[in-house]
Amino acid sequence: MKNCLKKIGCPSIEELKNSPAFPKKEDYLKGPIAVIECVEEIPCNPCETSCAKGAISVGKPITNLPYIDFEKCSGCGICVAACPGLAIYVKDYCYSEDEALITFPYEYLPLPKVGDTVAAAGRNGQEICQGKIVKVFQSKVGNKTVLISMVYSKQFFDEVVTMKRLKMNA
């Protein structure tokens, strides 16, 4: 779908593939890398300034879309914590033979716990498969944005971008 972002609210795979930062299949073969879902020119560049490896460039004007050099990206996740738009996650296609790992930003309470089985969700919130939480990470650079690492089936590698929110007082 061409105008998914301005109609449905989330970008389609086609819109993402047309953006300069979105990885190609072969980029995933080197291990964990940052995936930026930023397809609209807004004035913002903390992804660029947060990256210690200099892998992300926005340049001037700061409304340029970000570009990633996957040779330099180590998948450390600092940009995931720094992005004000919560539009970056790290995906590792090589996590295991049939499982992938995603580290995504999360700003809801309650937080999941390591070992929890949760519902892995796609771009429009639909449940896609089960996910297992392997890390819940809070840092100063995250400034209250928590990074959640979740393992899920490789079969749904592209579709999964987050987890379903946990109910309050559940």
Binding site: N3, L5, K6, K7, I8, G9, C10, P11, E37, C38, V39, E40, I42, G85, L86, A87, A121, G122, R123, N124, G125, Q126, V161, T162, K164, R165
Partner: peptide
């Protein structure tokens, strides 16, 4: 068409709104 920044709409969209 939606008015707000795409990163904001995407955030609530993946929350199922």
């Amino acid at each position: 068409a939606l008015g707000g920044y795409g990163v904001h709409t995407a955030k609530v969209c993946r929350a199922g709104v």
